[in-house]
Amino acid sequence: MTRVRRWLPGLLLVAPSIAAIAVFVYGMLGWNFRLAMTDKHDEISEGSFVGLENFIGLWDQQRWHLSVNHAIVFTAVFVGGALVLGWLLAFLMEKGIRGEGTFRAIYLFPMAISFVATGVVWRWLMNSGTGERAVGLNRLLDGLGLEFLQWQWFRDPDWGMAAMAVPAIWQMSGYVMALFLAGFRGVPEELREAARVDGCTEWDVYRRIVLPMLRPVTLSALIILGHISLKAFDLIVAVSGKQIITDVPAVFMWVAVFDSHDPAKGATIAAYIVIAVSVFVIPYLVWSLRKERRS
């Protein structure tokens, strides 16, 4: 009884939050999955259970294939680009450099701005006009004598999504830099010194000691970038709106709900996004909690 009195107040204090998370996260995820398994294809009908029909039917739609392909290209370029650039910046600053604070502040400031605001300027920068009509980066390339590099940017039918990843890399690589910088600084100097004493070159020190110790940070960065990428919505809407040429599942879902007025279809697309994110976030959470418990 006394033990219960010891922890009960705590539980009561957290109870509203537990209830809110139970309803708004888990309840609504469940509700969404249930909706995705009905034939409620307009806003009035009740909708009856149809199993996985919507989940299978989606693959018959060309637009769905397009949006999945787009998401894959975007994710690959964005995650890869942000990781490499963020790592490079951290690597260059790792040993301390004059003006480090200023550099860091400049690389990180895009994080404080909304994708909608940066989308405005990136749409201008990646304007597809060429030749006389070129503005933005195409005009800049022209000025630099590199006009052969002018291209359609995000309007390119094949690699448009790679262009779309450029603003995302610009926005997020500072964050990756900060993560890696913390990782670099977490390697004890004595360890490096000891290796040097043993006759290791700087390169060896880096490969054998620093790189393995950066693995957890790299994993965290991968997870964060990956889940941002799969949900990508703001940036794409801000840069190109609802155009099919840059369609991704998150935008497709929005169109399904607001333009096609098809709740079941919207819920199905949303469910696929949830599944795609969960596949790697859940193992990551389990892994990091185990790690925390061990230490």
Binding site: G10, G27, L35, F233, A250, V257, A270, I273, V281, L285
Partner: peptide
């Protein structure tokens, strides 16, 4: 069970909000 509660909270940090939007 505080640990379990905390873990269940954490997943809420990563969910794509599209997955709750229509019910919300």
């Amino acid at each position: 069970g505080a640990d379990v509660v905390f873990t269940l909270f954490l997943f809420g940090m990563f969910i794509p909000y599209q997955g709750v939007m229509i019910p919300l």
